[in-house]
Design a protein around this nucleic acid. Sequence first.
DNA 1: CTGCCCATGTAAATCGTTACATGATTAC
DNA 2: GTAATCATGTAACGATTTACATGGGCAG
Lengths: 201, 201
Amino acid sequence: MSLRYAILGFLSSTPASGYQIGREFQNGAGSYWSALPSQIYPELHELEELGWVSGQVSKTDRLRRKIFRLTPRGEEELQKWVEADNDYPPERDSERLRLIFLDGAPPDVIRRHLAGHRAHYDKRLVVWRGLREAVEKRTLRQLVRRLAMRPPADHELVIRLKLLALDGNIRRAELEIAWAQEALEWLDALEADRRKRRRAQ
Amino acid sequence: MSLRYAILGFLSSTPASGYQIGREFQNGAGSYWSALPSQIYPELHELEELGWVSGQVSKTDRLRRKIFRLTPRGEEELQKWVEADNDYPPERDSERLRLIFLDGAPPDVIRRHLAGHRAHYDKRLVVWRGLREAVEKRTLRQLVRRLAMRPPADHELVIRLKLLALDGNIRRAELEIAWAQEALEWLDALEADRRKRRRAQ
DNA sequence: CTGCCCATGTAAATCGTTACATGATTAC
DNA sequence: GTAATCATGTAACGATTTACATGGGCAG
């Protein structure tokens, strides 16, 4: 169900076409939910049938884009969902799974995995930090649009919550990087020790 | 595809029935992958058809349990998967999604969400810490069985990798708790400040 | 006029959850 | 005997990914 509300959330800052939503929901982009166009277009149609969004093909535009916007009903439903208790997803971590079963593999393979882990979160970190800066400088498009449709008294909270969420993700990424780094160092020490012992025999 | 290998991994420490696998894969249990019996039983049958596991109904047992064990082929396939590069899943975080759209909600609702976040990871933390202790004391069943089928020279690595994975999860949980805690304190300060300003007017 | 990005979709397959069914064993 | 737990499944639904299809606009 979250995709539905991720779309509503996006549209609560600005009207947009399915294509624009698709770009934002591409993995690596700034949003907290990812989905492919093949999932987004049908969902938009369902939302339209529900009357939670309304779409109209722009006439001024040569590109036959269909721009969707939240209806009052959609806004209500979004708010209801947002305030509801969260269901945390079950644990599913394929990298951890690999790691604990790598106990029969050569150290270089373990090293490759840890380095890959670090590299993955290095990339994520760059994205999150970039977004954080864009929020602080008020250059993030989504944020600017959201602020524009709200009373100035709310601006601080809007920004603070965005920063809070981003900081959480930044700290997660930093943690994973530090963890992998320490693990790599431990692995190096372990191997040095083993080489020493082999020589000592 | 990961479920398949999570099952193979489990069976690489000890033969087991679908029911036993089901208990371990219950969320909250110690494994890094969760799944329900309705997914596990069919997967075991597919694995049997592939010849990666072989199951036989125990005759000494009054309960008609079917015990599965890895075949050599299954061991090979597991090792291949374990060593392969990991595909990290796309970002999907419904709690973050809620948080950034909570900017129109009353502070108490935000507080409830942050407290819920902390509570969730408090629970996870207890589980991970418990498992860590059980690994250190060598009382964890899965671990004992895995060690039993390996040369003593490998024991340290087996244990270290388990601890490494658990420490990662413990640190994740601690991070989420600290993050939520700090956010709650910030929220308290914000509200105190607002009350003060309102009085000052 | 060719290749790239914009733009919108459908169909099939895979993965995961929810709901339902059934029977045997064990503890009270 | 009856409730809880053991044990194994099937069917339907929902969510996600992969593959495929189509056509317009724009830059070189």
